[in-house]
Simulated scan of single mutants.
Amino acid sequence: MIVALLNQKGGVGKTTLALHLAGEWARKGKRVTLIDADPQGSALDWSEQRAREGLPRLFGVIGLARDTLHLEAPELARDADHVVIDGPPRVAGLMRSALLAANVVLVPAQPSPFDGWASGEMLKLIAEARIFRPQIIARFVLNRCAARTIIARETAEALAEHDPPVLAARIGQRVVFADAAQSGRLVFDIDETSPAAREITALAEEIGSLVR
């Protein structure tokens, strides 16, 4: 399975979700490769920090911020159970290549009426990719949700009838994600029984159910 996390809006948590999904699948014994397709290289930076901290390598991280991604990702997938693509913001060629590479496209969005879930350009790119690969599965995923807020509920309700639809699993606004990122860790490394860890597990399981 090749999963791409894409949104033209920056700051929605693509890298955090990509790293944690890769880590969750690796913890379950899967062979995982993460492709850092963002020219900023945040996932590569995280991987280097993890090595400096002397933490075990859970999965490989490869920098491939180029528009031949749709040709190279399937080759990498031959030696992995899952490939996770951390996509770029606002780089149309790279975005299109990542869309054509993926089986599952996740569009992270924060619960706000002004956030990326309303991006007509992102939806247009998904529609274009489906002309060539109609089997692409696309879903929104609500990220950085404050607990029990009206806006989170309203955003979920608005996306319930949307195409692409929104996943049931959602990720909370939790300081532990930022703490983990700075030290090359994942929330599982800090506390595998935490609410954050349980949310990531639920998200990974729901994504896996899409392609069974």
Rank of each mutant, 00 (worst) to 15 (best):
I126K: 00
V187R: 06
G184E: 10
K30D: 11
G29P: 08
L203A: 08
A22V: 05
E199G: 01
A37W: 09
D163Q: 14
A196P: 14
A101G: 04
G93D: 15
I151A: 09
E154F: 11
R96N: 10
H82L: 14
L58S: 02
A109D: 09
G54R: 03
A196S: 07
V187M: 03
E205F: 04
L17A: 08
E75N: 00
A73E: 02
V175G: 03
S112T: 07
Q135N: 06
F132C: 00
A37G: 05
D179N: 08
L19S: 09
W25R: 11
L64P: 01
P89L: 04
A196I: 14
S42C: 12
R57T: 08
I207L: 13
D115T: 09
K28L: 12
L100T: 03
A77L: 12
A197Q: 10
V175K: 15
N143C: 03
A146R: 14
A37H: 10
P39C: 04
L203S: 09
D79G: 11
I85K: 04
V176N: 03
P88K: 13
R185I: 10
I200V: 14
E75M: 04
V175P: 12
A158Q: 06
A127V: 02
A160W: 01
G93P: 09
Q110H: 10
R174Y: 01
A102E: 03
V187A: 04
R57M: 06
G172P: 07
F59L: 01
D163W: 13
L123Q: 12
W46V: 12
T33M: 10
V12H: 11
Q49W: 02
L106S: 06
G87N: 14
G63Q: 02
D163C: 00
V107L: 15
K9L: 10
A109M: 11
D163L: 05
A73S: 12
A156F: 03
V141Q: 09
T155F: 11
I171K: 10
E199T: 05
G87Y: 06
Q40S: 05
T33L: 07
P164M: 05
A51G: 05
F177S: 04
A4F: 06
E157F: 00
A109C: 14
M122Q: 04
E161T: 08
I150C: 01
L5G: 09
D38L: 02
A129I: 07
G13Y: 02
S119D: 15
T155L: 12
R144F: 11
R185V: 06
A22P: 00
E48G: 08
A147L: 15
L125Q: 14
G87K: 06
L100N: 01
L106C: 13
L142V: 15
T201N: 11
L19I: 15
A127S: 10
